[in-house]
């Protein structure tokens, strides 16, 4: 949250398909969709399983552990709300559950970034009713 208390970054607009994901973050849980038809876990949340075409889902809690798949270090403010964060690292992570997520990575020097680096998910409430995930160095599997 900025010094004035006004959150000026882009905010998500949850849909009926994704609302449980965002509610889970508010409870500091990373929830993933699991197909009730075939058991496949998918991300990001969406209505249909591409394997069996079931639209029935349950939500399972991810371990929050994963390894880096790729990353970028952003030096340019593409939105006024991120100017104070520059530079920041956006990491794409292979989660243990077999899907990927993207979040800001904190606490890893640029020259230590590598594919396969273990990370884990933390949570940060950035405004009333909005909690976002971020990543920190994790323990090797």
């Amino acid at each position: 949250m900025s010094a004035t208390g006004t959150y000026n970054k882009l905010v998500p607009e949850p849909t009926p398909h994704s609302a449980p994901y965002w509610e889970g973050l508010n409870r500091r849980k990373l929830l993933l969709q699991k197909c009730r038809g075939c058991g496949e876990i998918r991300h990001y949340p969406r209505p249909m399983c591409p394997s069996c075409h079931s639209m029935e889902v349950e939500w399972v809690e991810a371990s929050g552990r994963g390894v880096i798949h790729s990353w970028t270090i952003t030096h340019h403010a593409f939105h006024p709300g991120v100017r104070e964060d520059l530079p920041y690292t956006l990491a794409t992570v292979d989660l243990e559950e077999g899907v990927r997520m993207l979040a800001q990575l904190r606490g890893v020097p640029d020259d230590k970034l590598r594919i396969g680096l273990p990370v884990r998910v933390e949570f940060e409430t950035v405004k009333d009713g909005l909690t976002l995930p971020y990543l920190v160095p994790g323990e090797p599997a």
């Binding site: 882009l10 790729s70 970028t72 920041y88 794409t92 800001q104």
Partner: peptide, 22 residues
């Protein structure tokens, strides 16, 4: 727009850069 832009991945340069990095 829902799952990446709120985390700071906003523009094509940021969304495409991880392809190049990998």
């Amino acid at each position: 727009g829902e799952f990446e832009m709120p985390l700071g991945a906003i523009a094509p340069a940021q969304l495409y850069a991880p392809m190049a990095r990998r």
